[in-house]
Design a protein around this nucleic acid. Structure first.
Lengths: 167, 167, 167, 167
DNA sequence: TTTT
DNA sequence: TTTT
């Protein structure tokens, strides 16, 4: 269809560490579980309410997949831009299921770490568009040895994210 | 969570007329099925490819629901802004299902008709935000006339869902 | 700054034909003037009000520049996505001026024609991201013919700016 | 114009404390200076490059103005959503000037603090749309006494923002 | 200068 | 089920 737009913009926190799948082609595909939430005061009861929504993000964009793998961890706050895609699959009983995901296709989408201060001043923002754009040095000088990403500090917030993840 | 954003922006075409459900409160909730699609030339085969994605949009915003009911029809091109929401339900066999929708909550979201020329110069854009903003005259002088689209099946929401497809 | 986003999304109409500048490199840079407008009913007076905003868009993305040149004309409705950029310049009196533009950098941004029906079924949507994505056939089989829009003033950029208005 | 969209999305840091102007009506209008920046490696020289863009944000939305006043300070990272507006003015010599701003109109726009952890677990996100939505408790229990917002810690980053602000 |  |  000439003239369509399919765009999702999320700012939220990872409910768990990124899941990395290595493809036969050598490329990686990274899955993120991202929580967004809203809070408000109920007009009737006066109570504070909060509702968390969980989003499944799939990163095929190679540069962004690398960055996700290297810099994101449970609890990280990120800006993500991708497109909606619903795919059909069958569970073990053969029942038809649908899953809607936010997909960052090859060369497309955006991913920006919003709390990058932790971890030593490294940046990790990257725009999906161009091959000559975005941060290159993190890719050239990746996480290196064992001093790397600490195993997902069980900070209070990250802990909150632990339950109720539907996927 | 302090600091989260959950936003979907679509430009696409309605696959069928809006579905309007009248609530007991007197308010209407409108469902839209919107198609977005992408086309590209396959690098291997050189063939033209196209992929269409279908989106289920649910409008709780009263002003936008009115506009959708009055001005949108099968084939209309619209700009829609809402938020992602996944809800769990059970099909007739008791199997658990998830459906992800783009929701325009009360006072929130945006809806703009992009091919309003047809139909006699009527405008129908409206921003969800403010009570003193947006087009009011279409609401004051609705489509009227007998030629109009019939005022929407009062099917229950549950009834709409009792088949094995997501929408 | 790790973690920043600078994004503009416009849906509006071209106030005049695209302006194309041919660079020494052989690439083209295209400028668009896009109008967006809002209408509302004034609460005090009850009068209908309308306000139009004009936006200057600059397309460095080569693929999108080609599409703009070939398919857009005065009155076209487009979806544009780019980033804000303010540049300083001096008018003929030496006075300092600032102009803010929506810029589609190389490999970045999006441009989609929203009223492509006119012109014979040609599509012209294109996503800025990938080199293997988007419409290729319009590029392979461009508008041709002598009836075409003239290939754009080769005025220098400075020349365009030497009056006292921002664009 | 039926069918137009004028939207800006920024994630960036405040270059200085919010500027609050009290109107005769008793309402406040808040101005923010927000920096976004990009970094990349230059293909020719191999050098790291960085470019910062400054944005002037004007908040007429009362709820968001309150939140900006209470919770934002120099260096704060925010998500802002508003619309582009260019206004003409005259400098002291009578010369005509144009300034483009990101405006959050009454009942419109969004503002979300992205580094709210500092300051005692207070949230400050708020969606501009609805009167019954968004966080209310920060408004009911504002900054309170002297323990309040520390005077814009001259952290290294904030310090970097100090120079080169064009407005 | 567009569009409705 | 739309649109090109």
């Amino acid at each position: 269809m000439a003239g369509s737009v399919n765009k999702v913009i999320l700012v939220g926190n990872l409910g768990r560490d990124p899941e990395v799948r290595r493809m036969n082609s050598g490329e990686s595909v990274v899955n993120l579980n991202i929580a967004t939430s809203e809070s408000w005061r109920d007009k009737q009861s006066g109570e504070r309410k909060e509702k968390t929504e969980w989003h499944r993000v799939v990163i095929f964009n190679e540069n962004l997949a690398k960055i996700a793998e290297q810099y994101l961890k449970k609890g990280s706050k990120v800006y993500v831009e991708g497109q909606l895609q619903t795919r059909k699959w069958q569970d073990q009983t053969g029942a038809e299921k649908f899953t809607t995901e936010i997909v960052l296709q090859r060369f497309r989408g955006e991913l920006t770490l919003l709390d990058g201060r932790a971890g030593g001043g490294e940046q990790s923002e990257y725009q999906g568009g161009g091959s000559d754009f975005g941060r290159s040095s993190p890719l050239e000088a990746p996480r290196g040895g064992g001093q790397a990403r600490q195993p997902a500090a069980t900070s209070s917030y990250a802990a909150d994210l632990d339950d109720d993840i539907p996927f």
